[in-house]
């Protein structure tokens, strides 16, 4: 069996798989499943487990796995390249720009106490204003942007220090 690791909300999940003829065997975090497997190429397949049918499609793009199961979308991160992946990326205690846009108004200042889900910054994108909220209750540790600044997606705009 071929073993791979995926990441979901910082949990690593080990997946071993084997496809032979028109059946598959797999072990997901120690749990065994098996059934029939019909591969159509181009990233799509149909699996049957007992009498349940799953229409599957999956692609990999930039360390992310996009999967559809009967039209439901699952996104998993690749468990590799951990260091690179985490560098400069959003920590849980920061607010990041969700898309390219412009900072309209920073609503807090450094050192200020904030409540979880309190509005902290207004960003404009697609000509709509989006209010981003504090992820934690605590204080504003540092500001990385100012009013009027153009920002790129994934960049931390405000970092917070969670209250103990």
């Amino acid at each position: 069996m071929k073993r791979q690791e995926f990441k979901l909300n910082n949990d690593k999940i080990s997946v071993s798989t084997e496809v032979k003829d028109s059946s598959f065997k797999a072990e997901v975090d120690g749990e065994k499943i098996s059934g029939s497997w019909l591969n159509f190429g181009e990233g799509s397949a149909i699996a049957k487990i007992d009498d349940k049918t799953f229409r599957l499609a999956a692609v990999k793009h930039k360390d992310k796995f996009w999967v559809s199961v009967n039209g439901r979308i699952y996104i998993f991160d690749s468990a590799h390249d951990d260091d690179e992946y985490n560098q400069g990326a959003a920590s849980e205690n920061s607010v990041t720009a969700p898309m390219p846009g412009k900072v309209i108004k920073v609503l807090v200042s450094e050192g200020e106490a904030v409540e979880e889900s309190q509005p902290v910054i207004v960003v404009e994108a697609m000509k709509m204003e989006h209010t981003l909220r504090a992820p934690v209750t605590g204080t504003v540790k540092s500001l990385h942007c100012e009013d009027g600044e153009q920002v790129e997606p994934g960049v931390a705009l405000i970092e917070f220090e969670a209250a103990e």
């Binding site: 797999a26 997901v28 990233g43 397949a45 599957l56 990999k60 009967n70």
Partner: peptide, 19 residues
């Protein structure tokens, strides 16, 4: 359906690596 989604993630993209 997360289990089968993970199985699909493990098998399908490899088959179309070139894509």
């Amino acid at each position: 359906d997360r289990q089968i989604a993970l199985v699909a993630a493990a098998i399908l993209p490899n088959g179309v690596k070139t894509l």
